[in-house]
């Protein structure tokens, strides 16, 4: 089960993801976020992970995919509010070198 809540603030949007991110739910999350970003001409996309209970490497793929999309749209993506139980997989992923996560987050 997963739910995405998107709040817009000018050219930026925050997508609050509630629930589990796996290969099954990632598709649904991706479709909702990508449609919103394109319909609303978003330049800064914040992915709020504060309500993510579980995530496997599909979550890493989700972040990488949004990073590439925002780059194509001349925008950027930021992952915010990373809960402590997700820090290990994020560190392992090498995502920190992409600059999508602030140093203090993990």
């Amino acid at each position: 089960m997963v739910e995405v809540k998107i709040i817009k603030d000018g050219e930026s949007a925050s997508a609050l993801i509630k629930g589990d991110i796996d290969h099954h739910t990632a598709k649904e999350i991706r479709e909702q976020i990508d449609a919103y970003v394109q319909d609303n001409q978003i330049k800064l996309l914040n992915l709020d992970f504060s309500q993510v209970q579980f995530m496997d490497s599909s979550g890493i793929g989700l972040i990488m995919g949004r990073f590439k999309m925002m780059k194509l749209l001349m925008g950027s993506v930021k992952v915010i509010n990373v809960p402590s139980h997700l820090k290990r997989i994020i560190k392992l992923s090498g995502l920190l070198s992409l600059g999508v996560i602030e140093k203090g987050e993990v």
């Binding site: 490497s57 599909s58 793929g61 989700l62 990488m64 995919g65 997989i89 392992l92």
Partner: peptide
């Protein structure tokens, strides 16, 4: 593009 290639590493 949407798969990270990290399954076995994890």
């Amino acid at each position: 593009a949407e798969r990270a290639g990290l399954g076995f590493a994890v």
